[in-house]
């Protein structure tokens, strides 16, 4: 469903990023976001990174999700 989990960008090839969430890796298009680098966190929706978020916010959200879904 429409959940948005912050994902860490671990590699970029052309406009496609490899993203990592708790060790699960997927691909996401970077077409909709500007200036994303390896190490950044992005919110991924339906195969597209739709926003870049700062690391503090991403880690806070991930910690919260781990508590909720534990």
């Amino acid at each position: 469903m429409c959940l948005a989990i912050p994902s860490k960008v671990v590699a970029i090839n052309d406009d496609i990023a490899t993203i990592d969430v708790d060790g699960v890796r997927r691909k996401a298009s970077l077409m909709l976001v500007e200036d994303v680098c390896v190490g950044d966190y992005v919110i991924v929706h339906a195969g597209y990174a739709i926003s870049r978020i700062d690391a503090d916010a991403a880690e806070e959200t991930l910690a919260l999700m781990h508590q909720v879904f534990q």
Binding site: M1, C2, L3, A4, I5, P6, I43, H45, I50, S51, E60, T61, L64, M65, Q67, V68, F69
Partner: peptide, 30 residues
Amino acid sequence: FQAIRGFEKFVEGKPAEELPRIVTRICGIC
């Protein structure tokens, strides 16, 4: 579908004024 059950229990005991900030972290699409 993946469900978000568990969230409603999670917010119990929290100050209500914090909820508008917390809920945005669960559903980041809208």
